[in-house]
Design a protein around this nucleic acid. Structure first.
Lengths: 239, 239
DNA sequence: AATGTTAATTTGTCTTACAAATTAAAAACA
DNA sequence: TGTTTTTAATTTGTAAGACAAATTAACATT
């Protein structure tokens, strides 16, 4: 027996191995959106494992929104066409965790948000449509309701900024920017509770909308810079 | 019996519900990193479900790198401290899928990359350390080896740009930028195979490093703009 | 012809059991 | 007594089989 060429003993999780194989098939394009996988029983046969193991593997993929399942004769497991929303959600969740664990400090977060939002602003000024403006006006109207809870106010704030991201016309940039903003929301909420002057914020949003109406990129950017500066001040005073 | 206030019938997956509950406990901070969850048997008891169901729920969380498991008396399931690398990996994977499914078009991707990389560049010029410069020089040396395969050349290309992202000093921005760049790699690879002039790219990298050495932000940005312009040209000619 | 019923298929869940890994304590030995 | 080996206990990993629930299609009934 030769000592060389030992087989790499893979005693990794079976379910993980199977999930990896299936994922690779999806990413590489062998399996396309809405394709139907074999039934769980058949997969169990093909991989020579039990059905619970197959199910654990499928759960891993389902957790990443790569597949969906349905019962019944026409049911089965199907490849999902991943949506930007799904991705945004999981990215936001993960970023929130990282923020909560101080993987990023406040300076980094604020700086990243400022730079991203300014870029979105520059793109949004020429690209915004009337629909975008209307959505922003609606949020502004909500924010002016003084009976609104702090949480609802912040949610509307986030919605308005998300619209700004959408208005950039660049879905990738908008997606990234929005995730950063939403991950910041818990912190923003806290600040809003304690310091933020709603009237001031509403006025800033009013001016932001007006600048976008007139396609005034510089004007819009100035307001975003102002808002971030305010946030930074409040946070600096706080923590 | 009143017709109002029907209870929302929740016949969602048990495993998903359990995973959601546990995830919320993690995100909300009730469960901290390295905390140990109850054993699977105990969880099954507490949730009044069977162990396989618990295991499926745990697989969902494991797929998101939120937990890890170990066997044995001191083993069990523990809360993971999520790392930026893990997150970057899953974001890259997801973005790659979205790109492959044409959720973003090429213009959006290139524009996003250009804007993100320019911001990183501006930050990197003053913030780069000697270690960053050295890493970039090493990658440049690799790229000048003409016996390198196209894939390896591109991998080194990506590594150099990742270093640029790191040099920005903003981990959040760097993380986002890198994910966008890496998701683009398959496309970039293709272009590199067919069009890209390695010598030109190497020279550009050389100039980029020199600009960063001298902390010349405008110079570095100019080169990044140049590279994106080249990419855009090649892609425009291609697709 | 419209409608209700039944059967078949597929995922969802439960139960029980054993395997594998790992640690801690107990036992054997020097 | 100190060291090593063995054994037992604990916990996750995997398996097999069974039944439940949902859904569709074919069938039967009025």
């Amino acid at each position: 027996m030769t000592t060389s060429a030992f087989e790499p003993i893979k005693r990794d999780n079976l379910s993980r191995q199977i999930a990896d194989q299936l994922r690779r098939a999806i990413v590489d394009g062998e399996l396309r959106a809405d394709d139907r996988l074999p039934t769980e029983d058949e997969l169990a046969l093909r991989f020579s494992v039990s059905r619970p193991t197959i199910r654990e593997a499928l759960k891993i993929l389902a957790a990443q929104n790569l597949i969906r399942s349905k019962r019944g004769p026409t049911g089965g497991t199907f490849i999902n066409c991943p949506s930007v929303n799904d991705l945004s959600e999981s990215l936001t969740c993960a970023t929130t965790l990282l923020v909560g664990m101080d993987a990023f400090n406040m300076d980094e977060i604020l700086q990243a948000r400022e730079l991203l939002e300014l870029q979105c602003c520059r793109l949004a000024a020429p690209n915004r449509t009337e629909a975008h403006l209307e959505r922003m006006r609606q949020q502004l109207a909500i924010q002016r309701d003084s009976s609104l809870s702090a949480e609802d106010f912040c949610a509307s704030d986030v919605a308005l900024h998300r619209t700004l991201a959408d208005a950039s016309g660049n879905r990738l940039l908008g997606f990234v920017m929005f995730s950063v903003i939403e991950a910041l929301q818990p912190v923003t909420n806290m600040v809003a509770h304690r310091f933020r002057d709603r009237a001031l914020v509403s006025t800033q949003h009013q001016r932001l909308i007006e600048a976008l109406e007139q396609q005034d990129a510089d004007g819009a950017c100035a307001i975003v810079t102002e808002q971030i500066r305010d946030l930074r001040q409040h946070l600096g005073a706080d923590c």
